[in-house]
Design a protein around this nucleic acid. Structure first.
Lengths: 371, 371
DNA sequence: GTGAAAGCGCTAACAC
DNA sequence: GTGTTAGCGCTTTCAC
């Protein structure tokens, strides 16, 4: 074997690096053995009879010296697996959103647990999905997790059939991909309102998310059903639908208070999301009201925002969803690799739970009037 | 052209996929041409004379039919570039943190701008760095961004020399990697306190981060220097050092108020981070005080939390740091590829700015007493 | 205009 | 125990 290749000079102090990673061939040369010997010395078990202890020693030393790492791409090419999963989401504008963060945390954790790495791919809009998603199914990851896709069609026509996929909160028709995770929003809202009734609240203002969003609609439905089941009459103009933002909640609340001056203040506000609830709180506080002494406020999702404020809220198990999504995805990947069908359910519904917080207390006895 | 290949039956309800991606060979076979012809038909410009228009047509159609995508690993192996960057951070416990989210948003954006994808790697502690980071330098990414590394040594001994690296807020000695980004915390704190003085505040309580953290120390120093420069005497017991958490701020604030009962309430609180400031606000509000009517509160970082609450704060340009980190990393990668030295500075200091918010107003005239 | 061959870095399957 | 070969999917020579 020709040994003419010049040994790389010691890297100077400036930021100048070898342009390429050391290869197995480098290690073998350094150790004076064949690539094969080097490979088995590095991979074989401690007691593999493949190489002599002396050779292994030399190879290991050489690898160490060169800071050798087997090339991930070569490995992936041969083994047909990357041990990486992709996480697709729409870009959170300049402002990151807490919802993404929660699920992402779960994904990261799930990935760690299953020894995978996570690659994040962002779309600027779901309109890009039909072109961008297929492009990501090129062997760079073993499978994909798609966060809250919102599409016109069901993806049957353009979704590659060869990359396992799990969606979280897929809306509408998207189901072609594989397994989907969702939350029983209706039940969560129902339970929260039920508990608020138990605390003596009767006039609960619902400031929900935009009409047309499945999750927002479900939450509003749960709110309504709780009233019906409890036999509590719904006061007029007590369901608002606003964008899923702090501003949405704040402005709607301000306008509502303005509109209902002189009338009794509701005992509580049920926000359609944490952000909405926070916006409502701000409007209430700005008006000199005290939460929860004068009025209770609860949110939905119980994201970082709610936790930081110790706000009562319906908790969506976002973290768990991310975590479980990875686990299911890994099963899909395994099944796919063996050309087997995946046996589990294709739609997994997780249950939300209510979380107490400083913003929700018993309803006050004497009703206040809106000033 | 053999058309005998069984058309994949309409995917049954069960989730069963081809275990492998279609390859160039598949496309060539489907189109009845050689791999070579297929390759040039797919890659050559529209008017490349390499293949006939008719052949190109056939190949393109076949590729479409098979949903063919060139294998990313094979490409990476040949081209020695993955167009991916890695982002290394310590795992945010179960609770994700807003700091990470900000920087990450910038990284994602920078990656989109430079057509890179981002892989996220999490360590459970920086102790793992010497073993885990080298393992990530295996060609799976073209370079690495390391978020807030906190290490004993400088990494010289174990950091691979062959993977370009950029750090953000590297603490202490880590500098071996390449370029580092940091914020001038001292200047940010100084400026904020100066502005508070201008609003009439004189007794400002600083609830800072833990002693020993460079950023926390710098902020405290800025606070002190502002006092010195303005000739404002520092009241006793007006600098606290607590963990960078809401609880840290809340508990410290509670205890402090308890400790100083009957004494005049400070006109303002300067939190060492957003979370700390929020904790302080909670403690103040719990005591029946109104922010900012009775007392102003400002934070540091101006993360999502601060923005949501419209809290005044020193804004660290975290998003920009992430974004710029990618840009610099790409330059390092390019330099490395050409075996050139990187010319730019190895430490980049960004300036923070103050952001107004609802929690900071002019100091009240009549001092309150702590009840 | 088209095809065959070599090689990217690696491992599994065979010689010796 | 050690070396050689082939092949993962692709592109880049180089022949035809």
């Amino acid at each position: 074997m020709p040994d003419s290749k010049p040994k790389p000079a010691e890297a100077p102090a400036k930021i100048l690096r070898r342009s390429s990673l050391p290869t197995l061939a480098d290690v073998a040369r350094e150790a004076g053995v064949s690539k094969m010997a080097a490979s088995s010395a590095l991979n074989g078990g401690q007691n593999s009879a493949r190489v002599s202890a002396e050779t292994r020693e030399r190879v290991l030393a050489a690898a160490q010296r060169l800071q050798y790492r087997p090339n991930a791409n070569a490995l992936a090419l041969t083994s047909r697996r990357t041990n990486a999963i992709g996480f697709i989401t729409t870009l959170m504008g300049k402002d990151p959103n807490a919802y993404f963060l929660e699920v992402f945390g779960g994904v990261i954790q799930g990935a760690m647990a299953t020894q995978q790495t996570t690659a994040v791919f962002t779309l600027s809009s779901w309109d890009e999905a039909p072109t961008r998603i297929p492009a990501l199914c090129d062997g760079r990851v073993d499978g994909l997790i798609v966060l809250a896709p919102r599409l016109e069609d069901d993806g049957q026509a353009w979704l590659p059939q060869h990359t396992p996929m799990v969606s979280v909160h897929a809306s509408g028709s998207w189901r072609a991909g594989g397994v989907n995770f969702e939350t029983d929003d209706e039940a969560g809202a129902y339970e929260m309102v039920r508990q608020m009734f138990a605390l003596g609240h009767r006039r609960i203002l619902h400031v929900g998310g935009p009409a047309g969003y499945p999750s927002a609609d479900s939450r509003a439905n749960g709110y309504l059903r709780a009233h019906a089941d409890a036999g509590v009459a719904l006061p007029p103009d007590h369901v608002l639908r606003v964008p899923f933002t702090t501003e949405g909640g704040r402005e709607a609340m301000q306008a509502w208070l303005q509109r209902h001056r002189g009338q009794p203040l509701p005992e509580a506000v049920f926000g359609g999301s944490d952000a909405i609830a926070i916006g409502c709180m701000e409007a209430l506080v700005a008006r000199g009201l005290n939460v929860p002494r004068d009025i209770s406020v609860v949110g939905f999702d119980h994201t970082l925002l709610a936790r930081t404020l110790q706000m009562a809220a319906v908790r969506q198990p976002l973290h768990e969803m991310g975590h479980q999504a990875v686990e299911v995805l890994v099963q899909l990947i395994e099944a796919s690799r063996r050309d087997e069908a995946y046996a589990g359910p294709s739609n997994i519904v997780l249950l939300p739970e209510t979380v107490a917080g400083r913003t929700l207390t018993e309803a006050r006895q004497a009703p206040l009037l809106i000033s």
